[in-house]
Simulated scan of single mutants.
Amino acid sequence: MEQFSATDASLSGFRLVREHLKTVAVWAALMTIASFVVSVITIKVAGPQLTTMMELSAEPSTDPQATLKAMEGMGPLFLISAAYSLVIYSVLLAGVNRLVLRPQDSAGAYLRLGADELRQAAVLILVNLILLAAYFGAVVVSVIIGAIGAGLGGAALGVALGVLTGLAMAGLMLVLAVRLSFAGALTFDTGRINIKGSWALTKGRFWPLLGAYLVALVLALVVYLLLLVIIAVIGAAFGGGLAAMGDAFNPDLTSLAAFFTPAGIVRSLFSGLLSILVLLIVFAPPPTIYAQLRGRDVLDTFG
């Protein structure tokens, strides 16, 4: 069985950034503009309501009815947000696949609005539906097993079985996520939606794939936190002092004035770069590994 370098794959996002600085700059600028527009619309439409909902959700003792009441009338906003996320991620994931699998196709900074993007959207929807179905199925099984255990051996046995089935559920979700991780790259490469093919290509490679993805996630988290600290420091330097540093971590959505403080403006200006760097670090490994397994020399992509 042909193998790959998990270490090289986990660093593939950094290589893409290094070799495609202009492309990353364009993506970051476009993402910043999109994020700015969405933030303004969201705050104008439901800023205070969102703030209330998040505050209630963060309190464990909050009455669920109060949270649901705060969400009243926000269905359209959630649908628009979901549609926006689907479009953005479909375009960007197609762009990442294009960077790795078709590096010569550089027109438009590797971004398009076409059949490839539509297929990526379909893959995102299908994979998430599979994961969602598996999650709800596992939850039902977990509740049933916990109830049976409580009936046979008391509350302690019920809790123990509930914990064990919860761990099994987490393991199932992890296995599914890894085994389906080539769906996007395979679909982009072949020009047809192929979820099943990812399961076949990842067979026997779960642990090295998991290792590569976990390292990439840790690196993305480090970059994310580091950039947040830099954003907070710069924002504090422009006004508000140390107290303003909290704006980078917990933006105020109650109004445009509260959101676009000096620290908030700095955060907005850096938001696109932050999003693109994290996206490349997390999502570059699957197409890179796929390319290696399919016999492509991805090193050529990076010079």
Rank of each mutant, 00 (worst) to 15 (best):
I281M: 11
T202W: 07
S198C: 00
G240Y: 10
V141A: 11
G13Q: 04
L157I: 09
D189V: 02
L77I: 15
A138E: 06
L21R: 15
V141Y: 08
L113G: 04
T67C: 01
A82G: 04
A6W: 12
V141T: 06
L273Q: 02
V278K: 02
S181R: 09
A66R: 14
E19L: 04
G197F: 12
Q3V: 06
A236W: 04
V229R: 07
A133S: 12
A183W: 06
V45R: 05
V127F: 05
A94E: 07
S255V: 10
A94C: 03
F270K: 06
A66K: 15
P286K: 13
E59K: 15
V282Y: 03
N97W: 01
P287H: 07
Y84H: 04
R296A: 15
G162I: 13
L164D: 06
Y135K: 09
I80L: 15
S90Q: 01
V139P: 03
L79W: 11
G171N: 10
Q49F: 06
L77A: 11
R267S: 15
D247Y: 10
W207C: 01
L269H: 02
L77P: 10
T254L: 08
S271Y: 06
L30G: 15
A236V: 09
Q65Y: 10
L176R: 07
A284N: 09
L219E: 10
S90R: 01
A257E: 15
A258H: 03
Q104Y: 06
L273A: 10
Q65H: 11
R102L: 05
Q65R: 12
L30M: 13
L228E: 03
V26A: 14
T301I: 04
R18C: 02
L93Q: 10
A160K: 08
A258K: 07
P64M: 08
G73K: 10
V178F: 05
A83F: 12
L279E: 01
L126K: 06
F14I: 14
V282L: 11
G295K: 05
F270S: 01
L167G: 12
F270T: 08
I145M: 08
G153Y: 05
Y213M: 14
L16G: 14
K22T: 12
L186G: 07
A291C: 06
A216L: 03
D297S: 06
G158I: 05
M31W: 14
F188I: 06
I88P: 00
L226K: 00
A134Q: 03
R98E: 08
A248Y: 09
V37Q: 00
L86D: 02
P287V: 08
L30S: 10
G73V: 05
M1T: 14
L279I: 09
Q292Y: 03
L180K: 04
F238V: 12
M173F: 03
V37W: 01
S198W: 04
P251E: 06
A82F: 13
A28D: 05
F4M: 12
K22C: 00
V223L: 14
